[in-house]
């Protein structure tokens, strides 16, 4: 039945989009396929075009045709794996991505895709291995990969260590620092969490919000004197802002709250 649906989609392909760019590119490929219907690469290209524009049914139909014509077509397994991941067919995605990596072992993008697939399948160790290898191979890994890897680590200390590796490599980016901060606090490492906030605060032109957050963290942990110091620093930071920014509704409210917290800590 599924094959029938895909065949019908394949027949209908080319009329599914109203976007002129897609129509133009599909039209070009339709002409090429009409001229050389046995060229598998053209179906792969058309499938990728549909996948790029989120028509997963037409994409799959074209990939299927490409596979019929040339099962070992370079790039086809990766394209099919990426598509299966998007459509939530994780077991299928894994098989395709295994094949893609067999075809081209250094492909970091395929490794990240397979890492995500394996994570979705709850194969934690295998996913970690793929993310680790991808991170080794990439010249400029994005924070997303470090976050995905840390999410697989159930031990907070290991997760923090993993994030620290990212921070060392790509710099002190808020997305990694904030995840590390949450892990530090949830595992009771309040001083370490406070240092994370100091690190973020030092990087910004406006530290009042971060210092307030530090005060809240210390307050939750029962470190009242330190919390008051942080709140006072936040108030000082607010006072140092230009008037137009200091007097914004949010900052006026923040100043009021900080004064209350300093005089009457929770």
């Amino acid at each position: 039945m599924r094959r029938l649906v895909l065949t019908l989609a394949f027949v209908a392909a080319g009329s599914l989009s109203a976007h002129p760019d897609i129509e133009e590119a599909v039209s070009r490929l339709n002409d090429a396929i009409a001229a050389t219907p046995g060229r598998a690469a053209l179906y792969l290209e058309r499938g990728q075009l549909y996948a790029q524009h989120d028509d997963t049914v037409s994409a799959e139909a074209n990939f299927l045709r490409a596979a019929e014509l040339s099962p070992q077509l370079p790039g086809l397994a990766k394209a099919r794996g990426a598509l299966a991941l998007v459509t939530g067919e994780f077991a299928e995605a894994r098989n395709f991505l295994d094949a893609a990596l067999k075809e081209n072992p250094p492909d970091a993008e395929a490794l990240v895709l397979r890492g995500r697939t394996l994570a979705s399948l709850k194969f934690r160790a295998a996913a970690l291995a793929d993310f680790n290898t991808a991170l080794e191979r990439l010249v400029q890994p994005s924070p997303e990969i470090y976050l995905a890897r840390a999410a697989l680590l159930s031990d907070p200390a290991e997760a923090i260590h993993s994030l620290d590796e990212g921070l060392e490599r790509i710099g002190a980016v808020p997305s990694l620092l904030l995840r590390a901060l949450a892990l530090e606090e949830s595992s009771g490492r309040i001083d370490a969490a406070a240092r994370r906030i100091d690190q973020i605060s030092a990087l910004t032109e406006r530290s009042e919000g971060w210092l307030k957050r530090k005060g809240d963290l210390l307050s939750r942990a029962g470190h009242k004197a330190e919390a008051r110091t942080a709140y006072t620093s936040a108030l000082d930071a607010l006072a140092a802002l230009p008037t137009w920014l200091r007097d914004s509704p949010e900052n006026l409210a923040l100043a009021t709250e900080l004064k209350r917290l300093i005089s009457n800590p929770p």
Binding site: Q140, S142, G171, V173, L176, L203
Partner: peptide
């Protein structure tokens, strides 16, 4: 590809992932 920061777009452009042109560091181009 944005996740791997690879491919033509990322080869052609040098963009401020460390916050060096102002604002917070994104860690990515």
């Amino acid at each position: 590809n944005s996740i791997t920061q690879s491919g033509v777009y990322f080869d052609l452009f040098t963009l401020p992932r460390r916050g060096q042109a102002g604002g917070a560091a994104s860690g990515t181009e």
